[in-house]
């Protein structure tokens, strides 16, 4: 039973593991760049999730070719299209995060969350 739960839904397990690894990184890492990378991983998990739900069992690529059988089954192309956009969003997020990290390094001399927190603690409100 457990075995089947793992094997039959292996694609979902991949997503979950990716997302949780990413989530763990976001929460546990103190280095801001590592945090940003973990965030990327988290988003990738979601990309995979969308791709996997677009798959139709026995379906083929959603391109009509002349001569294809009339009852041909196609996979759903929409999630792929969506994820193209999501990738762009993810890249932009990463870019903003990196830019911020660079600025933080300039202003604080560190990109470690703990050190920053300590520095900020000494400042007045």
């Amino acid at each position: 039973m457990t075995m089947r739960l793992v094997l039959d839904y292996y694609n979902y397990w991949v997503c979950i593991i990716l997302m949780m690894v990413g989530f763990y990184g976001v929460m546990a890492k103190t280095n801001l760049v590592k945090k940003a990378i973990a965030l990327g991983l988290f988003q990738t998990g979601i990309l995979v999730f969308y791709i996997t739900i677009g798959k139709v069992e026995g379906g083929t690529g959603p391109v009509t070719i002349s001569g294809a059988p009339a009852d041909a089954v196609y996979s759903n192309p929409l999630p792929h299209a969506l994820m193209l956009t999501a990738i762009v969003v993810g890249v932009s997020t990463l870019a903003v995060a990196m830019a911020l990290a660079v600025k933080i390094r300039e202003k604080y001399g560190t990109i470690d969350d703990h050190d920053i927190h300590r520095l900020e603690h000494e400042m007045p409100d």
Binding site: F23, V26, L32, K35, A36, L39, F42, Q43, I46, F49, Y50, I53, A86, T93, V96, A97, L100, A101, K103, I104, K107, Y108, I116, E120, M123
Partner: peptide, 27 residues
């Protein structure tokens, strides 16, 4: 105030997680 930078990145991290949660829900 340099703390604007850290405020922004903390918001970025949480905001992105929030948006991702929304995305999963929509999925």
């Amino acid at each position: 105030d340099r703390r604007a930078l850290t405020a922004a990145i903390h918001y970025l991290v949480l905001g992105t997680i929030g948006a991702c949660c929304y995305l999963v829900g929509i999925a």
